[in-house]
Simulated assay, not measured.
Amino acid sequence: MPIPFDIWSPPVSLATETDDLPDTATRGGETQGWAERIALGLFIGLPLLAFVVAIPVAWGGWLGWVDIAIALPMYFLTLHGITVGYHRLFTHKSFKPNRAVKISLAVLGSMAIEGPVVRWVADHRKHHKFSDRDGDPHSPWKYGNSTRGLVRGLWHAHVGWLFDAEQTPQRQYAPDLMKDRDLVWISRNFWAFTLLSLAIPPVLGGLITWSWQGAATAFFWGTIVRVGLLHHLTWSINSICHAVGDRPFVSRDRSGNVWWLAIPSGGESWHNLHHADPTSARHGVLRGQIDSSARTIWVLEKLGWVTDVRWPVKDRIEGKLVKNQQPAAA
């Protein structure tokens, strides 16, 4: 299927309301094969190994300003591809983008290497449907409230669930995305955006320094360390933010706000409000809560590239605060 080039025109549907949807919007099926598990293990294991050696490598002088100048923009661009694109747009429909923004966010999210957009959205919608109950793909409370059960559950919520053989049915949880030709094409070609994400840092590093060493250090910091850091920061929302944190808002699960994850997670760690009001474009709604993803959406709205943004309403927020709840009648 050729990619459409006129990204400014309205999206073209893959199927109408009465047409049958494809079985899957990704190259894999609804059951994870061994090849996928091996690839997933490598993408988790290699960055983790990089973390182990990152500090002594940096201390030894193998970290330069060129590496930082490449790694930081790559981190925050792909991070917001997940937070603004995969999460707030495609999963929760917090705003309406033009086609160029839609495609750009789907590509940047794919370059975070957290899976094809349609599969990611299906998983996250299922998480919200069963949050911290049976059926939740990644609740840290899966194995009970004991210390041993929570430790096991935190591992499951953070990374273990990614290896579950049975995948979330895309037709059931993301039929709207499966009708979108652009998003199906991007999902099916996730591998290409993975390669692009891996290649950009070393290519830039080599061209800027005009040396193989510059390419190698940029690959280490801008690709391996950047991907690993991004993965574990976003996965921490599944694990840490459902185990600890402040809960100023009423929600039907154990989602909490973890302030020290706010900046590196793009505001996603203001997780209690998100589960109290999932479609809100801003998660950090209280004073001092930094939310760079919401600010990104605000900029896009000011530029006229997105519309119908679901900004939080003061009365609605006030009504969801635990301190404002009426006591139950005796």
Rank of each mutant, 00 (worst) to 15 (best):
I68Q: 05
F95Q: 02
W34F: 13
E17H: 12
I3S: 06
A328T: 14
W212S: 06
I82Q: 02
W120G: 05
I55L: 14
K314E: 14
G28E: 08
A106V: 11
D23R: 14
Q325T: 10
G304H: 11
R188T: 09
H274Y: 01
T234R: 09
V53C: 04
E36N: 11
R27K: 14
F193H: 06
P97D: 03
D176E: 14
D134Q: 12
D246K: 15
L42P: 00
G304T: 13
G256M: 11
V159M: 13
I200R: 02
R188A: 11
L63C: 07
P278L: 11
G28D: 07
S280H: 04
G284Y: 00
S139G: 03
D20Q: 10
V151N: 02
P56C: 05
P22K: 02
K179Y: 07
V57I: 11
I290D: 01
D19A: 12
G115R: 00
L105M: 13
H232V: 13
V227G: 01
R295Q: 10
G60I: 07
G245L: 05
N98A: 09
D246E: 13
R171S: 02
V299I: 15
T209F: 05
A243V: 06
L46M: 10
I70R: 04
H274M: 05
K314R: 15
L49T: 11
D67S: 08
C241M: 01
I82F: 05
I44A: 08
H127E: 05
P11S: 12
A39M: 13
A157R: 03
F76Q: 03
H231V: 09
E318F: 13
G144S: 09
G109A: 06
N238E: 02
D164Q: 10
S104E: 02
P97K: 07
R99M: 09
